[in-house]
């Protein structure tokens, strides 16, 4: 059973750059709910103590927003790009695994956005990036 339900990357202005669902058989309603969950998680990031610091050595934010079915984990870069992973509530994944996952995800993001043809702070539509994220998701 896949643990990762959704991976999301949110821009500096809290606009979605990349949201990809992984669970199979998700209805439109559930997909929409995932968007709502990720969107609501932004509130939690803003409420997190220490988030106001300009630079933080700890980028991993931990568990943000447990819902009945899912858990949302977050990661914020120093440039205020936020990474979210939505996993099933039944998943029991260690924080260290999340940190590794987020670090890899950040590297993928950096490689993709370093493309000179990518316009910063816009939706990531690279199929290569999508495939890499799809390949990365099972590692969690």
């Amino acid at each position: 059973m896949k643990k990762v339900v959704c991976v999301a990357i949110i821009g500096k202005g809290n606009n979605p750059l990349f949201i990809q669902e992984f669970a199979t058989g998700l209805t439109d309603e559930n997909k929409l709910k995932l968007h709502y969950i990720v969107h609501c998680s932004l509130d939690i990031i803003e409420d997190k103590p220490g988030n106001t610091k300009k630079l933080s050595s700890e980028l991993y934010l931990g568990l943000l927003y447990p819902t009945e079915d899912y858990k949302v984990y977050g990661y914020i870069t120093n440039s205020k790009i936020k990474f979210f992973v939505v996993v099933l509530d039944t998943s029991d994944i260690k924080d260290s695994d999340f940190k590794i996952f987020f670090k890899r995800l950040q590297n993928l993001y950096i490689n993709t956005t370093s493309n000179p043809f990518y316009k910063p702070n816009t939706k990531i539509e690279s199929t290569k990036f999508l495939q890499e994220v799809i390949n990365l998701a099972p590692s969690l």
């Binding site: 202005g13 606009n15 979605p16 949201i19 929409l32 968007h35 709502y36 969107h39």
Partner: peptide, 10 residues
């Protein structure tokens, strides 16, 4: 305002 097009679409 937040340019969440998916949610706005709904």
């Amino acid at each position: 305002r937040e340019k969440w097009w998916t949610l706005l679409t709904h």
